[in-house]
């Protein structure tokens, strides 16, 4: 995440536009930048190494 640690408004606006978030103010963009870092940290905190291909999601499709 080193390259995203520093806020770059143009780059964050590009990210926002790719997400359909086209009406964000500069303050909102700073929030999105911070949130993206939080999101990356959360992704990193998931213990995915513990999963095997057979581990299914908690909620699976079931016929009624």
């Amino acid at each position: 995440m080193a390259d995203t640690d520093v806020f770059d408004e143009a780059r964050t606006r590009q990210l926002a536009e790719s997400l359909g978030l086209t009406r964000l103010t500069p303050d909102h963009l700073k929030q999105l930048h911070k949130a993206a870092a939080v999101s990356a940290a959360r992704r990193g905190a998931l213990d995915n190494a513990a999963l095997t291909p057979a581990d299914e999601p908690a909620h699976v499709f079931r016929l009624p």
Binding site: L15, L19, L21, D27, H28, Q31, L32, K34, A35, A36, V38, S39, A40, R42, R43, L46, D47, N48, A50, L51, D55, E56, P57, A58, H59
Partner: peptide, 28 residues
């Protein structure tokens, strides 16, 4: 509000794989 907006933005950049893996870990 600012706090809510920032908390909800954190969901914007999670991927489908992140979500599915979280639910797989949830089951375990």
């Amino acid at each position: 509000g600012a706090i809510t907006r920032e908390r909800f933005f954190a969901g914007a950049t999670l991927t489908a794989a992140d979500y599915i893996n979280a639910t797989r870990l949830r089951a375990k």
